[in-house]
Design a protein around this nucleic acid. Sequence first.
DNA 1: TCCATACATCGGATTTAACCGATGCAATTG
DNA 2: CAATTGCATCGGTTAAATCCGATGTATGGA
Lengths: 109, 109
Amino acid sequence: METDSALSMLAALAHPVRLATFRLLVRHEPEGLSTGQLVEESGLTQSTFSTHLAVLAKAGLVMSEKRGRQQIQRISIDAFRDLMLFLAKDCCQGRPDLCEPLLAELTCC
Amino acid sequence: METDSALSMLAALAHPVRLATFRLLVRHEPEGLSTGQLVEESGLTQSTFSTHLAVLAKAGLVMSEKRGRQQIQRISIDAFRDLMLFLAKDCCQGRPDLCEPLLAELTCC
DNA sequence: TCCATACATCGGATTTAACCGATGCAATTG
DNA sequence: CAATTGCATCGGTTAAATCCGATGTATGGA
């Protein structure tokens, strides 16, 4: 994974509404949620939320599919996994010894 | 870990210079690097870089210690691990099945 | 065909981030 | 004690993000 891609994912998640949206979508795999349902949860205007969703989509963290006149949103677990791997490699390749305690806690969760 | 803390870490890493700085510091554990050395690597002004460093420090990702008149910067591996756990829990607690392939790739790296 | 629904996009106002030069301050050096 | 070094902070400019109301564009239903 390229650095630019990781940067846009990090920026996408670095906003309270977008992070909450992402976490909500994780809990709604694999059915997804419509944009309208997400707007309600967000408490923001429809237009404002739509731009937030576009940020997540552009970063590749969320993908959408049209169903009727609704737009169903789902997370891209592959993109998220790539981001996690990118971050983990900062430890593993830089300092393998630093990575072990991290993995130890991850595997038990 | 609280959401606010994760958000500030994500925002701190969502900048090319700060992400590069973080990754560089990982590779220089546990000795660390002085602010001056990091400024050189960054290619930015000393004052501009200093504010970037402050963002990383405020997020808890970097800690510093005074040595003579230099300020030695080191990553906080604990903070980084907490961030990784926070992100992983989005998958694990939301969808344990989504977490397994992620962990599988992480452990082999 | 006409209207309502679901969502995206445009235009514009406000806030925040990024960047720099200049200055301030503490610690080492001469 | 004076000069220098290493870094933080201030003031100000420019660019980008955030937010909203209004408008555009499909799709489904009456």
